[in-house]
């Protein structure tokens, strides 16, 4: 026996077992995929209607905004595929005492509870989003693919997913203290709702403070805005700092969420048997 668990091996087994499970309930899998894809397509239809009345929203024209929407879809589908089912289940694990078993395993507990389920049906949106990018990008005026796009876009997508994961696991960890946290999903929805629009929207007496809070305190505005802008807009020095900030924000978010999670575990007392 080697002394370090193979994290990749464990993750792949989780992914594999989840797929086997999803395939057992095929109809459910198909319905879930269809419903999430159709929800995104309706969303897209709505913005198409809006762009019939106007040529741009806070300086984002139709195809640029489609890139923004596609980015939102990519990030959200990744979060929903890998992290959402686990964060939701954490509350249940705490209430039923199932967390006991996670704590017994010779492997990082946060890793174990964060990735034990993979919700493959949520990847449907990922595919749709890639198609949308392929459709919208060539239609942006003067757009050409550069090496920076190829290198940085996936990287910032990953950073965005990690920021959202941190927020989510922090929220979920509170259920360890509260015993039950049903409002996790609602709160999550309110929060991510803000991240779904270009940050220029948040301006004025209310808007600016809101933007600052959601950039510097809970940096969810960085999640979509940075990769979407990188891909759809010409690179400008003005946003270079935001690109750099995204790195710092990700590291800080992960560190804070890890700290909160550890504190929560420490106070876990396990449900009665």
């Amino acid at each position: 026996m080697s002394h370090h668990p193979s994290y990749l091996g464990v993750f792949l087994t989780f992914a594999r077992n989840s797929l086997i499970r999803d395939m057992t309930f095929r109809a459910n899998f198909i319905i879930e995929s269809i419903s999430s894809v159709s929800w995104m397509i309706m969303n897209l239809g709505f913005y198409t209607l809006v762009y019939r009345k106007t040529t741009n929203i806070v300086d984002w024209d139709k195809y640029e905004f489609f890139v923004f929407i596609a980015t939102t879809m990519i990030v959200n589908s990744l979060v929903q595929t890998f992290f959402m089912p686990n964060a939701q289940e954490l509350s249940e694990l705490v209430r039923t005492g199932g967390l006991d078993f996670a704590l017994l395993k010779p492997i990082d507990t946060q890793f174990l509870v964060s990735l034990r389920r993979v919700n493959w049906s949520s990847l449907g949106n990922f595919v749709v989003a890639i198609l949308l990018l392929a459709y919208a990008l060539p239609r942006i005026d003067g757009w050409t693919l550069s090496i920076w796009h190829v290198l940085l876009y996936p990287l910032y997508i990953v950073l965005g997913v990690l920021i959202l994961y941190s927020v989510m696991i922090t929220l979920a960890a509170t259920s360890i203290w509260l015993g039950r946290n049903q409002s996790l999903y609602d709160f999550w929805f309110y929060l991510t709702n803000f991240s779904r629009y270009p940050m220029e929207i948040y301006e004025g007496a209310w808007g600016t403070p809101l933007r600052q809070v959601f950039t510097f305190v809970i940096p969810i505005l960085v999640v979509i805005n940075v990769p979407a802008r990188l891909l759809a807009k010409p690179l400008s020095s003005e946003f270079a700092w935001l690109g750099a900030f995204a790195f710092v924000a990700t590291v800080l978010c992960l560190a804070v969420s890890r700290w909160v999670f550890k504190q929560a575990l420490w106070s876990y007392r396990s449900a009665s048997s």
């Binding site: 193979s6 087994t13 039923t96």
Partner: peptide
């Protein structure tokens, strides 16, 4: 630790899949 009132195996999967997972976790 084995608890008679709680189960750690994946409910919807055959036990052999959970065993595989243990093989990976405990290496």
């Amino acid at each position: 630790l084995v608890m008679g009132q709680k189960n750690q195996l994946w409910w919807d999967l055959p036990a052999q899949e959970s065993f595989q997972l243990h093989q990976k976790i405990y290496r």
